[in-house]
Simulated assay, not measured.
Amino acid sequence: MADHRETAQPETAQPGPIADERELLLAWLEHLRASLLRMLEDLDEEQARWRPDGALIGVIGIVNHLTHVERRWIDGRMLGEAVHRSEAEFSPGPELTVPAAVRGYRERGAATAAAVRSMEVTRPCADGSGRDLRWVLLHLVEETARHAGHADATRELLDGVTGR
């Protein structure tokens, strides 16, 4: 499917210095979310699901997975709600459209930010793991960065578009 146009998308600006630790972590998480969503721009439904030789995950699957990851860590691990993991989140069916995936990820991001702002960074997870909100935020930054790179590679293989 790749035509290797080798076009670069404009880079999103990195967060500047922020003294408040919680806000700094949220800013980096939002920056990474925006970078990931840029990889979905201009893709149709088929392209958003494309996987090179059936490997990796389609860009829409990455967005859907990270939406669920944030819910599991914030609503589940931090707030103690019952949440479940499903392998189906990596390969969503046609009922999840690109606009719906984008909207869901943005809504989850807003819910994450609201929940995080209501807690101290030293608040322990409700799951008894010994982790705290600071650890969870760093993990979400790490997980989002890893998958944003994955989406960048998938998009480059798909049509040559690169960028952050």
Rank of each mutant, 00 (worst) to 15 (best):
H4K: 09
H4S: 06
R5S: 10
R5K: 10
E6Y: 07
T7K: 10
Q9E: 05
P10R: 15
E11D: 12
E11G: 02
T12I: 13
A13R: 14
Q14A: 15
P15L: 07
G16E: 14
I18S: 14
D20S: 05
D20M: 03
D20K: 02
E21P: 01
R22H: 05
E23C: 03
L24Y: 02
A27P: 00
W28A: 00
L29N: 15
L29F: 03
R33Q: 15
M39E: 11
E41K: 15
D44E: 09
D44H: 06
Q47S: 11
A48E: 13
R51N: 05
R51T: 09
P52F: 02
D53C: 01
D53A: 12
D53I: 00
V59P: 02
I62Q: 06
V63C: 09
H65F: 02
H65W: 02
L66Q: 07
T67A: 09
T67P: 00
V69E: 10
E70S: 06
R71T: 07
R72M: 12
D75I: 03
G76Y: 10
R77M: 12
L79T: 02
A82S: 06
A82C: 00
A82V: 11
V83K: 13
E87F: 01
E87W: 02
A88S: 10
E89V: 13
E89S: 08
P92I: 00
E95L: 04
E95K: 09
T97C: 04
A100S: 14
V102D: 13
R103D: 12
R103Y: 01
E107G: 14
R108H: 02
G109T: 12
A110L: 08
A114K: 11
V116K: 08
R117V: 08
M119H: 15
E120K: 04
V121M: 13
C125I: 00
C125E: 12
A126Y: 06
S129Y: 12
S129L: 13
G130W: 11
G130V: 10
G130Q: 09
R131D: 11
D132I: 13
V136Y: 00
H139S: 08
H139D: 10
L140H: 03
V141G: 00
E143D: 14
T144I: 01
A145F: 04
R146S: 01
H147L: 05
H147E: 05
A148H: 09
A148I: 01
G149F: 02
G149T: 08
H150C: 01
H150T: 01
E156T: 08
L157N: 06
L157G: 11
L158E: 12
L158K: 12
L158T: 13
T162K: 09
T162W: 05
R164E: 03
